[in-house]
Design a protein around this nucleic acid. Structure first.
Length: 594
DNA sequence: TCGTGACGCACC
DNA sequence: AAACGGTGCGTCACGA
């Protein structure tokens, strides 16, 4: 048995490694002595849990000063004892449990459902303590960042440097190291064990720091993480033939237009500098500048030029679009599809400062909405169709609720046209009224609203004034929140979430409040859907929408039922839903299959 | 070779 | 008086 001695902030640590099956007796003793609570972690060959090459290599258990490292890749008793430990320990602490639990589910045969009830996730605790990333002045939420902030900066630096050192030693790229490194490498063993000790210590530090108002959020966020991890595990069926074909078509389009651009003197259309040079050589005057003073060549400029018949602009824009669609979406899907033709998104249920969720892998929140071509790649299961249920004007209704504004609430109650009300208050088009309704929630100023709506700054000021006069309580709330945020540095949402507000941007307090509350309304709906047994049909949560695959013969009923369960009354304001049933592909909801 | 900032663009 | 909130991802350009 190998044993490593090291230190964390001056305190001694002990890391045991099971090198032979005989060593497992010591491991079992350790588990028996720590049955109440242990931190756990795993080492794998990569992050692509659902790819064929993925392997689980090592599982570690630890408390605040001692850890065991078990090479489950050897199978046999190593495997069996780890499974017993996972089942036996009463409380398991992970950092980002969703990942490890999916790994154990798929590669160790321990169902997530069995483990989730006893999981504590330090990433969740860290977010409830400070939802800001490191770039935003917060602690960040990765194990390394949190270790640096709460435990021991030197250890954090070592962990960060380790990968690079080992990769250099083995002459491989950084993300390849976890596949090739030998289990007997002492540094590998040391840091594998260390991760659980860090997690155990983080748990001790973070638990008392969770704000009292957020106390009830702890269990709720863990349940939400469970539901989202279940969606990840299920995955989303990919129409592989269609997707491959689309990839080829997009590549052809890209090459054709890129060739035209090269012919017109631009070697690299992705270099803004080069595009600007060619445009100027063609007599275009570029007036816009980026924050760093460079010539601004963006979509708006290119579209305007396309409109006036500039063939170079047309070629650049079309090539860029085809390339973006192919590399960002289509090829990405093909790359991560598993052997059953399913794509597994990574859902982070607790991501933004406002707690908004994020979805990567299938970047479902950013797929083009005006076109069905990309969404057409995804299918409902065999015998199923796609259904979508979204909230109707979720954020504005939340604003009506938390501000208590009578006019806004009345408008929603009577189905009056809120955008027209805003427009009429200053005598502008409904389109402008709608834009300002949303822009106000984002905290936009007159200049921005003017640019966005193609109106003068003067008119923008009038529309904003009209908005504030129409909904006086909204303005009052914004002022109140700003004042509170200036004084205290944060605001607290109706769900008990403490959201830090930057002193330079007190106006963002209103948006944080609305965005965060909206997220919690969707999140709580997911928990209700889970309780009613709908989780197997859920595919993705997308802001104010839930996407499902439902059996064809029950689709209408199912979508309606999901809509009923999601619909809610928030502080007296009804937030209704719009269930939609499509065809076999997600694209059908956007005009495909017609 | 890798990491990072700037930029641009997709969405709510 | 004015203040655009949040996300993911690809590419270039640059520096260690």
């Amino acid at each position: 048995m190998a044993t490593h001695e090291t230190q964390l902030a001056g305190k001694p640590l002990l890391i045991h490694v099971a090198e032979s099956e005989d060593d497992l007796e010591g491991f079992r003793d350790f588990i028996r002595a720590n049955l109440r609570i242990l931190a756990c972690d795993s080492e794998t060959t990569g992050l692509d849990i659902y790819s064929d090459e993925f392997r689980l290599r090592v599982v570690q258990f630890g408390n605040h000063e001692e850890a065991w490292v078990i090479p489950v890749e050897r199978g046999g008793r190593y495997n069996a004892d780890v499974i017993k430990a996972l089942r036996g320990v009463q409380q398991l602490v992970f950092h980002n449990a969703s990942f490890d639990l999916q790994v154990f589910d798929r590669h160790l045969g321990v169902r997530m459902e069995d483990l989730w009830p006893k999981i504590t996730d330090t990433r969740i605790l860290a977010h409830l303590v400070d939802p800001r990333g490191r770039e935003e002045g917060g602690t960040g939420h990765g194990l390394e960042d949190l270790t640096r902030h709460y435990l021991d900066p030197d250890i954090a630096d070592n962990v960060k440097g380790l990968m690079a050192v080992l990769a250099r030693e083995h002459k491989v790229k950084k993300d390849e190291i976890w596949k090739v490194i030998d289990f007997n490498h002492p540094q590998y063993q040391l840091y594998a064990g260390m991760d659980t000790i860090l997690t155990a210590n983080l748990y001790r530090r973070l638990r008392p720091l969770v704000p009292a108002e957020a106390g009830t959020l702890v269990r709720y966020e863990h349940k939400l993480a469970e539901v989202c991890s279940s969606m990840e595990r299920t995955g989303f069926l990919l129409d592989v033939d269609y997707t491959k074909d689309l990839s080829e078509r997009l590549l052809e389009e890209e090459l054709a237009y890129e060739g035209q651009a090269v012919h017109m003197g631009c070697e690299n259309i992705y270099s803004t500098e080069q595009v600007a040079d060619v445009l100027e050589a063609r007599g275009v005057v570029i007036t816009g500048r980026t924050p760093t003073g460079k010539r601004k060549v963006d979509k708006k400029l290119l579209s305007d030029l396309c409109g006036s018949g500039d063939e170079f602009a047309v070629a650049v824009q079309r090539a860029k679009r085809a390339r973006k669609w192919r590399t960002t979406w289509v090829d990405g899907f093909l790359q991560r599809v598993d052997k059953d033709d399913r794509c597994h998104a990574a859902i982070n249920p607790l991501r933004a400062r406002t707690a908004r969720m994020s979805i990567t892998g299938i970047p479902a929140q950013t797929l083009p909405a005006g076109d069905w071509m990309i969404r057409r790649c995804f299918l409902a299961d065999p015998g199923h169709v796609i259904a979508s249920v979204d909230y109707q004007t979720q954020e504005l209704r939340v604003l009506a609720a938390i501000s208590g504004d009578r006019t806004m609430q009345q408008a929603f109650r009577t189905n009056a046209d809120l955008h027209q009300i805003t427009a009429d208050a200053s005598g502008v088009d409904r389109k402008i009224g709608k834009m300002v309704n949303f822009a106000y929630v984002y905290g936009s100023g007159p200049r921005n609203i003017a640019e966005q709506g193609g109106i003068t700054v003067e008119t923008a000021r009038n529309v904003i004034a009209g908005f504030e006069k129409s909904y006086p309580k909204v303005k009052q709330l914004s002022d109140k929140l700003q004042q509170f945020a200036r004084r205290n540095g944060y605001v607290t949402t109706p769900f008990g979430r403490k959201l830090p507000v930057d002193p330079q941007r007190p106006y963002s307090a209103l948006n944080y409040m609305v965005q965060s509350s909206s997220r919690d309304i969707t999140a709580q709906a997911l928990l209700r859907l889970h309780d009613k047994g709908f989780t197997p049909y859920l595919r993705l949560p997308i802001h104010d929408e839930v996407l499902l695959s439902v059996p064809t013969d029950k689709a209408e009923w199912g979508a309606r039922r999901v809509g009923e369960i999601m619909a809610t009354t928030f502080q007296g304001v009804y937030i209704g839903t719009g269930p939609e049933v499509g065809g076999r592909s997600w694209g059908s909801l956007y005009g495909a299959d017609l």
